[in-house]
Design a protein around this nucleic acid. Sequence first.
RNA 1: GGCGCUAUCGUCUAGGGGUUAGGACGGAAGAUUCUCAAUCUUCAAACCCGGGUUCGAUUCCCGGUAGCGCUACCA
Length: 378
Amino acid sequence: MRELPHEESDRRAAAGEPFALRYRVPREAGEEVRFLDAVYGDQRKLAADIEDFALLRSDGMPTYHLASCADDIDLQITEVIRGQDHLSNTFKHVLIFEAAGAKPPQFAHLPLLVAPDGSKLSKRKHGPVVSVTTYRDAGFLPEAFINFLCLLGWSPKDDREKMSRDELVQAFSLENINRANAVVNFQDPLAGSLTAQPGSSHQDAFPEETFDPKAIWLNAEHIRGLTLEDLSARLLPIVHAAGYDVSEEKMLQVTPLIRERIKLLRDALTAADFFFAPELAAYDPAELIPQKGDAATAAKVLQKAREILATTEFTHDALDKNLRAAAQELGLKAGQMFQPIRVAVCGRKNAPPLFETLEVLGRDITLRRIEQARAKLD
RNA sequence: GGCGCUAUCGUCUAGGGGUUAGGACGGAAGAUUCUCAAUCUUCAAACCCGGGUUCGAUUCCCGGUAGCGCUACCA
């Protein structure tokens, strides 16, 4: 149809025959289309290898290629930075720009972010695991996530990994961009599970293992780099959203105890729950029993702790001194003394350091939880 | 099929004609410690294959292979 005479095609169009408008690519032998890509360098292609692509669909709507170029010309775009999946299409775009009498912008194509299986990330294929909102909701810091993304397909050429926005802006250059695709090492917890309900809450659908380990690590790094005030302020809304009634002051006290223990902001909910909830969640009383001890040991420790804590000043140093002394008095190692108290007060074995924890919890709550723990041992 | 892009530890990457091929994450082991973290130390782990060029290629060139992309009246 390429050689259809104008009269004939006009006639058929007038007769109502549907048609699309195509770019008639020059077919002269040796004719080349070329452009300089800021990342991939000099690009050239034989015009003969470019097919006559559509500009207008039969419904009169422009195709992406035409619309995109028209828009760039209108807006006087000078730099086009986009995915490498457009590298081949760029030859068509150059043709369009030239046909429109416009100077093609500077192009820079970036390597693609791909899934562990090598396929490019797609909303359709990979779903919410590749959505930035998923990362945001899981508690990734914007600056950490950007940091992570920048390190995929680009590097500052020195050994820096954790970088602030300013440092990234400072160090970034198109020349240092890699040309190979980068794998985002995620694991889709929903993959293959036919039971995944679309529209169901994804709140718990994305465990930590879902995300690229390096992204997690970088996030933890950024969290540790935040001031207590900043981190506390970012944590508070999350804690409130989870239904806890926590004051700014309380949050600020808790923050230093969990700052080095959380990797994602949402981890605060599990790392510090016992600070927030008035009542402890149920736990196994066996947890109260220390190493090399039995229920009697636990009971003895809690009894002693109750006495000590009834009068000891609730400061780190006083608690440290008196509880250690108590351990010695009972003929126990410090750890054996501390564990039952920790479990009584936190509801689990792994928690922030004991004295700081008691300090924040305060005497009333501490004594009450120790009482409850003693009751569990009976 | 045609055209194009790419190829260093599992992953992200540095490097580059002669190196013990560097770092980071993750993994393993250890130190520290009231648990968990954090921190520190150590270990395992890579130049896709084949030809050239060269005194010498992981590096440069060519070919192969593989992956990816484009090849839509989808963006």
